[in-house]
Computed example of a mutant assay.
Amino acid sequence: MTPAARTQAAIDLLDQIITAARAGGAAADTLIARYFASRRYAGSKDRRAVRELAYAAIRLCGEIPASGRAAMLALANTQVEIAGHFSGEGHGPAPVSAGEIPAAIGTTPAWLGEALNASGIDEAERAALIARAPLNVRINRLRVKSVSIEGAGVVPGLPDALRLPSGTNVETLEAWQTGAIEVQDAGSQIVTSAAQALPGQHVVDLCAGAGGKTLALAAAMANTGEILATDSDRVRLSRLAPRAQRAGVSIVTTRLLDPNREAEALTDWAERADCVLIDAPCSGTGTWRRNPEARWRLTPDRLARLVETQARLIDVGAALVKPGGALVYIVCSLLDGEGAAQAARFLAANPDWRAEPLKLPAGRTHGAGTRLTPAHDDTDGFFVARFVRMAAHRVLP
């Protein structure tokens, strides 16, 4: 493909991504994979270049663009080389017409910027939310004591974390194939450690997804005890079993839950868990470095529904914790409505619980929990709080 043809391909991709964002359809990485699956003529360099162009345009546009061409014109205004591709030659985009308007440059949609400001995330912090994320992996101590990977660096404060060079194809590494490493952001490793999981405990990972935090919990527990990993997404949960096998984890049982009926399926775990970890569904404002188009997909109505779901799941999880046990609430969001306000609501409604201060290798105290941000901690954005259920006191005769 010529450079101009790559630019046109990125415009075509952006049109699909914008349409999907408006309709709540597939994510950008899924659409990009589908796009190239039907275009075998595109070589690896072409695919990489088109992908980078598309994501560069996405990161540049705060509001959802009118079209892929408008988004690429905004990028062309910042890169002279790309501007030269709008000539109509070499399968490139047509020349720019008089009065054609590029997409507006910014970090977030206006309403979301106001919500982040109200949550203490200013413009400088927001700029870091859409920068490219580093590639981190977690060393799996169930398999190895140490790992050596060319070009890898350490992550301060996290002895099990390594930072790999950008663009590393992790699945081709022997360390990944043998289960010695798992891809996991440093922030995710930090907030999972708030569970303080110990060997022999009984733990519930209530929103386990594909199991990244589940496997980290199993390693902390030295693969002894019991972990129940649940989720309402069958496809994501199905990925956990092969990952657990590769990681040498044998203490995990999975259970598919029906949305809004989770409590009915968990009665056998009532007041039994030493710890329940809830990585709740959220806006994902803390993960825009990886999914920058997600800020186009979020609406006030969707955010309100997520807040309702989070509150319900906290209550479901709390019912599973035994006296003296802990509930760890996590969201990869920087909006207070999903983080600090949820923690405050739970504590106000449950006087038999207390927030336990966290001593984590990164982050700052925020409300009843801790918040990590890309600008301050060089991690994905997270809010995490640990609640302890006070043990009942027996009245002596």
Rank of each mutant, 00 (worst) to 15 (best):
R272Q: 12
Q310I: 11
L306Y: 11
A311P: 11
G284Q: 06
R305I: 00
L277V: 14
T299H: 10
L306P: 00
L303M: 13
V316Y: 03
L313T: 02
W269S: 03
R295T: 06
T299R: 10
R305F: 01
C282P: 01
Q310L: 12
L298H: 07
R290F: 00
A270N: 02
P292S: 14
R312W: 12
W269L: 13
D301S: 15
D274M: 03
W288S: 05
A294Y: 10
W288R: 05
R297T: 14
A311D: 15
A273T: 02
D301I: 12
C275W: 01
P300Q: 04
P292Y: 11
S283Y: 09
G284S: 05
V307L: 12
S283W: 07
R312D: 10
V276A: 08
S283F: 05
T299D: 13
L277M: 13
T287K: 09
V307G: 06
E271T: 12
W269Y: 12
T309S: 12
R295M: 02
R272E: 09
R312F: 06
T309Y: 06
A311S: 15
E293Y: 12
S283C: 11
A311N: 11
D279Y: 06
R302Q: 13
Q310C: 05
D274A: 10
A304S: 14
A311T: 15
A273R: 04
L277G: 06
C282M: 02
E308S: 15
T267M: 08
G286R: 04
R272F: 07
T285H: 04
R302F: 13
R305K: 15
